[in-house]
Simulated scan of single mutants.
Amino acid sequence: MRLVTVGLTPHRLEFLPATKELMADHDAIVLEEPPEPDFQAVLKGEISVEKYLENVEAGFPEYTKKSLELLKAFYAEGKQICQVEPYLERWLIIRSMLDSGIPREEVCTIQDLSPVYEAEHETFGKLLDYYAAMQGDFDVLVQKIKAFAKADARRISLRDKMRAKELVSLVRKFSPHAKIYVEAGYIHIKLVYYLAGQKKNLFRLRVENLLLRAVKAHGLHGVLPSPGDGLTSYYLFGGRHRKIPEDLLAARSIVYIKLIEKEELKPTEEEPFPHLRNELFWRLFVSKLSYEDCKSLDKFIRILPTKKAREVAKRLFPEAYQYAKVQLSTALASGGW
């Protein structure tokens, strides 16, 4: 029977070695991105990676570049590689139509596009509401980020449902004993849920969460997800699987996003997981803050750059800072990080 492995991973350089190891054990690789006209030409070496990157929107350019180089090598070995992301594919079509002057009302009448348009319209609207509230009261900001997380969860669920359906159709085309690797961002747990509901006797389903694997390999167990992801996951699964109150998760997410590193970091031999280490530290830090603590901290750091915000957080909540430092250091020492 066919094997479908879903690799849940952050799209970051530090996770490429583990991703490479998983991909190498499969016959085909399905990427989490809409089809690009020049993608196959890049794999064949007809277009350079650098030239290709000039024409695509890469949120993490270094990751995308290294990933493409890895995929070129796998393609040369005979692996099949394709891009499957029907939601984003439709969103690109919608953007192109709107940019060309086609009225929104007309786009909304197209049955294949309207659900994607509505999901994007709602989510972006809630995001704008959140940004507009950033000049005001913290309690209002908490409600706005909850509204955004709810809309985002609905969007993610639709995206995963659409992708699962297309993946099942694709899997049918492979030989009965093929091994297929499906790339997915770590927040797309619902994709696994939808695939499990459709697999029947078509394929065996395996899930590899590379983020959890890295955390456990370095001595940390039961670490909370980022507050924002935790809040989104809460809504993705109908308010289940979460003991922390919504408002507290939302409050923590507001300060957490101010404290973590935003720039793309390159792993080194001395620091193989720079992003993960940074984020785990601040997750541990905010896990010790109450709602009122977050409200108090936000008042001082909301308009500060990241470096200054961290200094203020350390000064105002030294016990939480020391807790995070001790917990992370102890775990990393025992895990051999």
Rank of each mutant, 00 (worst) to 15 (best):
V84P: 02
P37Y: 09
V49S: 03
L43R: 04
L88N: 05
R95S: 15
S96P: 06
S67F: 15
P37V: 08
V42M: 05
Q80D: 08
N55H: 11
P35V: 06
K51N: 10
V49T: 13
F60G: 00
A28T: 15
F39N: 10
V30R: 10
L88K: 04
E85P: 01
A73G: 06
E89Y: 06
D25F: 03
I102A: 13
D38V: 04
V56I: 15
T109E: 13
D27M: 05
I29K: 12
G78F: 04
V42T: 03
F74S: 08
R104M: 08
L53V: 03
L98M: 11
V30M: 13
P34K: 03
A73R: 15
P61G: 01
F39L: 12
A58T: 04
V107E: 04
E32V: 07
R90S: 12
G78K: 06
Q40V: 11
Y75C: 06
P86C: 05
T64Y: 11
F74W: 12
V84H: 04
Y63P: 01
Q83F: 03
D25Y: 03
E54I: 05
R104F: 06
P61R: 01
C82S: 07
E54N: 11
F39C: 10
E50Q: 08
A73V: 13
D38P: 00
G59L: 11
E50G: 01
D27Y: 06
Q80I: 04
E77G: 00
P34F: 05
Q80L: 06
E69G: 15
D25W: 02
I94N: 08
K51D: 12
Q83W: 04
F74K: 09
E36T: 07
D27A: 10
E46W: 00
R104T: 14
K65G: 04
L53E: 10
F39I: 10
E89H: 07
F39H: 11
E54A: 10
Q111W: 11
W91G: 01
E85F: 01
L71K: 14
A28M: 11
A73D: 14
P103S: 04
K72R: 15
I93G: 01
G101C: 14
G101A: 12
D99Q: 14
L70G: 06
P61K: 01
S67K: 15
A28I: 11
R95P: 07
C82I: 07
E106K: 07
Y87R: 00
L68D: 06
G45C: 00
V42E: 02
A76C: 03
L113D: 09
A41Q: 09
H26Q: 09
